[in-house]
Design a binder for these strands. Structure first.
Lengths: 122, 122
DNA sequence: CCGGATCCTTGTCGATACTG
DNA sequence: CAGTATCGACAAGGATCCGG
């Protein structure tokens, strides 16, 4: 109860849609989780840890809770709360696909000089 | 000098373009600065502080340095390094426009329930 | 084992005061 | 006006521990 990271307790910086999007997704990990779910459809807790970015377990747990409270992801089986219960995107989460596509496209076009190993897929 | 926030010293989490984009822009302020420059064309240091999100001066200075070192923004007058010298986007920075548009569109469509005051423009 | 929770150290954020 | 310096609060990261 020290830190309730919950969509109720969020204070928005402004009424701007871009700023509001960043209030919610403007960190280094949330969109990585969304990306994994777009690529794989569903993913269990430990499968998220297999991605090359190597998210640590405490951050993963916090972000999954956060994205769930926002309604962007959900458990595949709403009953069985854990033990190999995978996560998947809701319709809201899936709607982020164009955002990720544009971001990936931009990175490929404008980050190659700084990061030559960057790769060509979503 | 304790912390050189510079594009040279960045270590990429992976070769994924999405992760790499987030390595560079995955924070709450960088894209706000880009948004301001897209909307206004150029902006001086103190004008950035007028935006409703109220960025604080140390973070603003750090982000401006960071975006400059990435080649996304530049000074309007390359000689006169400061004192009313405005910033503007480079071609790389301008290319972020579709990313911001998709993000703004997503926020309008999926954040209204959580944040009813959200507004309808870029 | 799997899905987390907890501990602890380090790093980053953010407000404000201050300087050239 | 364009930044720096300072300092407290908080978030990230790594390691480990725990319950089912």
């Amino acid at each position: 109860m020290e830190k309730e990271l919950d969509s109720e307790t969020l204070d928005w910086r402004s009424v701007c849609p871009i700023a509001s999007g960043l209030d919610v997704l403007g960190d280094k990990w949330s969109l990585i989780i969304v990306r994994d779910l777009i690529q794989h459809g569903t993913r269990t807790y430990s499968e998220f840890g297999d991605s090359p970015e190597r998210i640590s377990t405490n951050i993963l747990a916090a972000r999954l809770k956060w994205l769930t409270s926002l309604g962007l992801i959900e458990h595949v089986d709403p009953e069985r709360a854990s033990r190999n219960n995978a996560y998947r995107l809701t319709a809201s989460g899936l709607a982020l696909r164009p955002v990720l596509e544009e971001l990936g496209r931009w990175s490929q076009n404008h980050l190659k000089a700084l990061h030559p190993d960057i790769v060509d897929i979503l």
